[in-house]
Design a binder for these strands. Structure first.
Lengths: 192, 192
DNA sequence: TATAATAACTAATATCATTAGTTTTGTAAA
DNA sequence: TTTACAAAACTAATGATATTAGTTATTATA
């Protein structure tokens, strides 16, 4: 018998992420994952609780990484420039880690406490970017919802080949965000 | 043996839609569908080609219905009012037929010719609403992408309980669309 | 060196989707 | 009215999957 390799939960998760990114979250099976790790399927249960648990881990990791990516993208930026950079970083993340991104959005729902917490982290990051706009708390929360809708919707449609015309997609995203931001300036009477 | 009931493809599809709307597209199995129709699983193959085919049918029907819903919603309206109504109708459809809506967005991709056609129908509907804005074809296509991103993103996040704050969701959607439309007016120098 | 924890294994079960082949039933022609 | 055919249902079988239970082997530690 081969010497055991001493897998741990993180290695298993990384392998799952690779599989998901390569083949899509739907195709991520414990059977395929075990094969990739050169172990038998039941051995996975030493490291994960089961397939639903694994998918939850992917979602959580995805949310954490997309937030980090946005944080990194807004360094040295503020206001519209920061929001635009965050939006582009979000969509870019979905492009580079499609499986991980799918894991976020393929989640049945966000009721899980751990996921709630990570999701709340993303929201509070966005609220901080919005701070200089001087919006009321309620207004800011509506804007956060709008921002998330735009970038998630864009990433999701793009991922499913929903944009079929031969039209530059980066340009579409930039325009979407800029048009929205311009409207926001107009709404709040802070037009430049 | 019970008398056979003479199912047809449409009845099977309707039952599948009900199951999907009730339990989510992930939970839609041929086993559950057969049970609901009081037949055995293999008998389903007299009416459908298989599970992937059934899901494709759901997607197609969903796209057709969401388009019809929007068309109905914009009767007697034009410009911003029409776009707003279409967006609200889109999100409303996703709320009322969550499984069917999931079928649209859970699709691996839109490569299938039938789906391409239906999808193109949605796009040309939106282009017609945009006609009075006098945009170039390219500009209009960017706006269509933006609109689809906003409404799909909103519907998708809402469906997964992505909006957790106790904030009126209809209001969030209205603001998102209105802010975007206001930005569009400003962009095109047709501000009212 | 012995022991305890744990990572891997095999075996077994239950649930699916799917295919092949068979039986039954409804309808339409003889 | 009877017969014949097409179609809708069935049973049986296969292969993939996740999961659990119980076993073996390996690593680390006492």
């Amino acid at each position: 018998m081969a010497t055991r390799q001493g897998l741990d939960a993180e290695t298993v998760l990384q392998a799952a992420i690779e599989l998901a990114d390569k083949q899509g979250i739907e195709q991520l099976s414990l059977a395929a994952l075990a094969t990739k790790l050169t172990i038998k399927t039941p051995s996975l249960y030493n490291h994960i609780k089961g397939l639903p648990d694994l998918r939850k881990q992917l979602s959580k990791r995805g949310l954490l990484l997309v937030k980090e990516t946005m944080i990194e993208a807004v360094i040295g930026k503020a206001e519209d420039e920061a929001l635009l950079a965050a939006g582009v970083a979000y969509v870019d993340f979905a492009r580079k880690q499609p499986g991980l991104y799918e894991a976020i959005s393929a989640l049945p729902d966000y009721e899980d406490p751990e996921l709630k917490e990570v999701g709340a982290g993303v929201v509070s990051f966005l609220l901080r970017i919005l701070a200089p706009y001087g919006l009321s708390e309620e207004d800011a929360l509506h804007v956060v919802r709008g921002f998330r809708s735009m970038v998630h919707g864009f990433a999701s449609l793009e991922h499913r080949n929903g944009f079929r015309m031969g039209l530059d997609r980066d340009e579409s995203l930039r325009r979407l965000l800029q048009t929205y931001l311009r409207g926001l300036r107009a709404d709040t009477g802070r037009e430049k």
